[in-house]
Design a protein around this nucleic acid. Structure first.
Lengths: 136, 136
DNA sequence: CTAAGTGCAAAACTTTTGCAGGCGA
DNA sequence: TCGCCTGCAAAAGTTTTGCACTTAG
């Protein structure tokens, strides 16, 4: 937590209680990736009164600082996760919505030819299907 | 065109002028992937009067029939393309929005171990960055 | 003729923005 | 104190839905 607070302070940003709550949620959540709505829900459970707008504004801010990463599973809502884990991708169950991390990254297997004259900034790789639980 | 019309008829679906227009747009468009809004725009250019709702309903239908494929570039709007090209992925320019197709597919390089006990249905792999044109 | 399909309007859902007041440093 | 932040409310953008009318087969 202190690490992130320092990062904010280093940029001259204020440590508001709302920002601390958002960081707390990510640090404490067993679920790695959360939507804005979920972050907001987990906070208002304990401390009603925080607005969803503030969650959005701060998720954006933490994203720009590199503290969070944005994911997109194609259901047109963004998911966010703490950028403190090893680079990974996901297996997403289309039945129950759960997801597992996988360490395989396609970029390692691509010829540089394939992406000649293109400066890669980021990439997404997600696999959708039925998880072990739902197959039973 | 006839191929797709047969596919609709085989399911007892009606061949409305709206459906034919949508198929025409995909067959004639130099741009491979189009949003609902773009499809609608291209049609009303020529034949005003078609509603966007109908475009959405029919894109869904063509998707379920396997005639179209859905793409998601993370800007929370869906793109659609005809499912008649070889399987591919994309390089998407974050500056100008253009995209190129690449034939590399990560699934071919994954160990089956990585996805044990998971029934793959589909996957997404998109690379974002700066294209040759925008780098000049 | 009749079920399937369409247009209209309204709503749902996620995300963004303007503004006035509040609070951290 | 001062400027960054927040909450409220409203709006924006994409997609979905209810309903009555139209149309393909």
């Amino acid at each position: 937590m202190d690490y992130y607070i320092n990062k904010l302070q280093a940029k001259g940003l204020k440590i508001t209680s709302q920002r601390q709550e958002i960081l707390r949620v990510f640090l404490e959540s067993s679920n790695h990736h959360l939507s804005a709505e979920e972050v907001h829900g987990k906070i208002t459970e304990k401390y009603p009164g925080m607005s969803l707008d503030t969650v959005y504004r701060n998720l954006s801010l933490l994203l720009n600082l590199g503290i969070l990463t944005e994911l997109n599973f194609g259901d047109r809502k963004s998911l966010f996760e703490l950028n403190n884990t090893e680079h990974h991708h996901h297996l997403i169950c289309t039945k129950c919505g759960s997801s597992q991390e996988i360490n395989f990254c396609p970029l390692k297997f691509m010829d540089s030819q394939q992406v000649e004259n293109f400066k890669i900034e980021k990439h997404s790789f997600e696999i959708f299907g039925i998880c072990a639980n739902c197959m039973k």
